[in-house]
Amino acid sequence: MPVKYGVPSDPDYNERLAEFEARIKRGEKIEPGDWMPEEYRRQLIRMISQHAHSEVVGMLPEGAWITRAPTLKRKMILVAKVQDEAGHGQYLYHAAETLGVSREAMLEALLAGKAKYSSIFNYPTLTWADIGTIGWLVDGAAIKNQTMLAACSYGPYSRAMVRICAEETFHHKQGKEMVLLYAKGTPKQRQMAQDAINRWWWPALMMMGPHDQDSPNTEVLVRWGIKTKTNDQVRQEFINEHAPEILEAGLTLPDPDLRYDEKTGNWLHGPINWDEFWQVVNGNGPMNKERLEARRRAHAEGAWVREALEAYAAKRQRTAVAV
């Protein structure tokens, strides 16, 4: 099958690029097999695999509390939620695979520490209230991004995001329900909820990535319909939605500069500590090493299992051929 990933040195590159961009403008989806710029493919693989890794690593901070969930219902919900994250990783790896990269290769890059994933998961979950707060804030922030990506120009990525968005809404709701409940609960529960909000608020704001002026990929991603909004736009939407609800619940936010701006209708936030952000991105967050180690261990301990099923399938095929 001819692989049609165009590079600028191709004689017909400009002509094909114009057609490609026109298709995106018309709202058409680009499908595997269609011509696309190699740069479009590269950006997609980068984003989708990062996104997939984030789901898979993201199972760990919440997964750690499954065995300590306080009711049967909460335990069931948390298992379902962490399971969904595995599912979402699974859907996303599938989307990346349609671009000709194997899951083996993507996982190898993750385990070798060469691939990035959302740095929010390098923070620890210290108490049970972190579970509610992650659902409300971290998933709330993720949904903002995912809703945008559901409109993405690449068919397989868009479809994965549509499915993920449909499933993810309950993640957000169960978290919000929990935090609101604890905010009205006993003094200990209230204090636990407030502490969790204090720790997760800033990292959640960092999830949308650097400010627009510091985000070199944004321009081309918007032009090719991969992203339809900038980091700062998505961040502002998130704050406008969540800040008033948290305050309304009688909780506070750890930002002394936070205020509602009459003119723009926006909730304005104080300066984000980008130094902390880059420290965590570059491997120095509290949990970077542990998270990666947990993934490596699971992968290594599962190797014999994967081999066994492959061996079984090979034996079966040989028998089938012999018959």
Partner: peptide
């Protein structure tokens, strides 16, 4: 096992 399975599909 949740989050630590031998492959994503079996974790699920």
């Amino acid at each position: 096992w949740t989050g630590h399975g031998p492959i994503l599909e079996e974790d699920i």
